[in-house]
Simulated scan of single mutants.
Amino acid sequence: MNKLAKGLLVTALATSVLGVAACGNQSSDNKTEDTKQTSTQESVAKKPVSKYPFPSDITETGDAKIVLTSDSGSSENGNVPVVFASSDDILIQLGLDAYDFDGSKQSFIYVDKIFSETNQFGEETTTSVDLDQEMGHLKPGVHTVSIVQFENDDPKKGAVTVYTQAKYEVKEKK
């Protein structure tokens, strides 16, 4: 090989090695940054923040009602159904029957006064509510599921037109 070919080959190899090394360093920098972001996200996630704050000083109003169901029974007639959960459980669903809601409005579902999701309920609707370990919904004890409808579907400024709730209990799974 002549000197020019050897020079080009050495330059190409050197560039390739530097490129791989730079990619490796960039990758580890990204991993460090990803780890920092994950740590930050986990610490933020430990403090439940409600997208729509639960209305203050309200009492049950309207004709609507909800019934929660689990394998242990239902919340009908003031009963408190039981759910068994362990720290390994990430998400458990609880049955939810909704009756006599205004189907033209959104229903805002709260678990322990923390916003969970919106849904559309009518005269009789059967669905489920997600109980999330990260949000504290699966800690042992009694918890409350509330459904609120607001004037103009505005949970920040609208007056409460419907508010009903039911309780469930979490017991430690052995």
Rank of each mutant, 00 (worst) to 15 (best):
D29H: 13
D29G: 08
D29C: 11
N30I: 14
K31V: 10
K31P: 00
K31H: 07
T32E: 05
T32W: 03
T32F: 04
E33R: 07
E33Q: 07
T35P: 03
T35N: 09
T35L: 14
K36M: 13
K36H: 13
K36E: 12
K36L: 15
K36D: 11
Q37W: 02
T38E: 11
S39A: 07
S39G: 08
T40D: 12
T40L: 10
T40V: 12
Q41L: 15
Q41H: 14
E42L: 13
E42M: 11
E42R: 06
S43A: 10
V44S: 14
V44P: 04
V44D: 13
V44H: 15
A45E: 11
K46I: 04
K47A: 14
P48Q: 07
P48M: 11
V49H: 09
V49Q: 08
S50P: 12
S50R: 07
K51P: 05
K51I: 14
K51S: 09
Y52R: 01
Y52S: 06
Y52K: 05
P53Q: 09
F54M: 02
F54T: 01
P55K: 00
P55C: 06
P55I: 02
D57I: 04
D57H: 12
D57M: 11
T59Q: 14
E60L: 05
E60Y: 01
E60D: 02
T61L: 15
T61D: 07
G62W: 00
G62S: 02
A64E: 00
A64I: 02
A64C: 10
K65V: 07
I66K: 06
V67T: 10
V67M: 09
V67L: 11
V67C: 08
V67Q: 08
L68S: 10
T69A: 15
S70C: 05
D71L: 10
S72K: 04
S72G: 03
G73I: 03
E76D: 14
E76G: 04
N77Q: 03
G78W: 00
G78N: 05
G78S: 11
G78A: 08
G78E: 03
G78D: 00
N79G: 03
N79P: 06
V80H: 06
V80E: 06
V80I: 14
P81L: 13
P81C: 09
P81M: 09
P81V: 00
P81Q: 01
V83N: 01
A85W: 05
A85H: 06
S87N: 07
S87C: 02
D88S: 13
D89S: 04
D89F: 09
I90W: 11
I90C: 15
L91W: 08
I92M: 14
I92K: 15
Q93Y: 14
Q93M: 13
Q93T: 12
G95A: 11
G95N: 05
G95L: 06
L96E: 00
L96R: 01
D97N: 09
D97P: 01
D97K: 12
D97S: 15
A98K: 04
Y99W: 07
Y99M: 10
D100V: 04
D100C: 06
D100F: 14
D102R: 02
D102H: 02
D102T: 00
K105P: 00
